[in-house]
Design a protein around this nucleic acid. Sequence first.
RNA 1: GCGAUCGUAGCUCAGUUGGUUAGAGCACCGGGUUGUGAUCCCGGGGGUCACGGGUUCGAGUCCCGCCGAUCGCCCCA
Length: 489
Amino acid sequence: MADHKPIQPPTGTRDLYPVEAARRRFITEAWRRASINHGFEEVDGPTFESTELYTKKSGDGIVSEIFGVFSGKDEQGVKALGEKLARGEDAPAPYALRPEFTPTLARMYAARAASLPKPTKWFTAGPFFRAERPQRGRLREFLQWNCDVIGLALPEKPTPEDIARATAQGDAEVIACCVGLLEQLGLTGADYSIAINDRRLLASALRATGVSEADLSAAIALIDQETKLDLHEWNRRAQPLNLSLIRVAQATDLVQAALQEFGRSRRVSEDAAAILQRGGLDAGSLFYLWKQLDSAGVLDRCHFKPDLARGLAYYTGMVFEVIVDGERAVAGGGRYDNLIELFGGPSTPAVGFGMGDVVLSLVLQDKGLMPSDAELMQIAGQSPDVFVISNGTPEADAALPSVLADLRRGSREQRGRDALHARRTSKTTKNVGKLLQEAEKSGAHFVAIVESAGEVTLKNLRTREQDQSKTPIASLKAEVLKRLGRTGA
RNA sequence: GCGAUCGUAGCUCAGUUGGUUAGAGCACCGGGUUGUGAUCCCGGGGGUCACGGGUUCGAGUCCCGCCGAUCGCCCCA
């Protein structure tokens, strides 16, 4: 304490004390479970990569927020690297903390593409870094969960319909996985909705309403900014592109109506299909997707949002976002069919999404879905199985350490699954009431009161039932394992 | 990079128009009734009032700077 200035954690980072660490684990465990249940395999990569890996992709937004590994606490330094890179200057840092996973994923996939199954389904969850100004739902270090389906399972000579169906299936799989996570955490259709659009549809609607091929991407970017710019400024930019939201909306209204009809009746009338064809709209992929979402049982959580574009330039087809009232998007993703190739792999279609822990935590807290502290410690596996206390006699005091050691010991045959989480007090008091209180507070399932060199009394703290008879120390561990239901594991 | 609000104990906060050694509750630690958890009683550790200057006889309080936090803008992989 000689130093007057304590070293504070860097801006936008978090110190996680036990309950907070348990809260984070609750989320990462849910992510793992959801993605594993949906058939994704876990992968991971380095937390820093060659700066070049990110500059290659040319997305200005992300590059300007790259964290140089030596930026430290210096606010000017934090963004200096990203700004240099965005101006096209050389990177002063050869490595960058990863701001997203997709480039790593693409690199990893490309390196083994030939031997990987089609499709390959990978997920990852870990820390990512962006040199942003922290605010609600955004930090500089956060966890992100990514699920991606890379490649399509196709017959030897696929018809366009085969491709459309396989594509929609991949799209639906990632959305279903995302829904699976949300539902497992207790969120329902009353809490969130999945907004879906398709870049191909958007592009065809723009073409149909008079936007030239050259202006397409600018128009899509502008649509994404619709709610961010004031009307006047938006119109000023839209005019030269020949972009009219009203005309786009009129064009997509047909799709809207047809998808709604599908939602109600599970079929599309001939008329609707014909109208779409005549309108020159590329809406077919959405109908395949709707069908797949319906089969996956998640269609009622989804809605068509014709003006959803998402900021990223690299999306080529379906795009989606998980929307919760009053918060930023909980998750977002889409199809990026050109990206793997851009990173040096074979031409491979892919679709995926990312979900951050920061907004998700806020949503769970808002909705009262974050478990209590005690429950979190239990979920995180940090509640003791047994709390061992001495009855205060010298004989019991002497026996206690070996009782503890025995409970904690795990066997090779059981791969340690028979090891128990056993604790004792660090206090000096011999007051049994106080020690029981401490055991209770620790969340322990059982308490074992050492009575002598050979016997203990067992008490279940959850039911508050105490054994009438004593248990020999020699059979204590087996007895506890049995009562925990962990025999024969 | 820009704007707004805010920094008193681990947490939630009191602290009068500037006025003795800066307080409470909770939490934490110890003790009491000599083996069963609430409640209770007693005691304890903790804060150079974020940090640095300035004004003043005197600053937690007023002024400036700085750091940090929160919420927005920009941006969103």
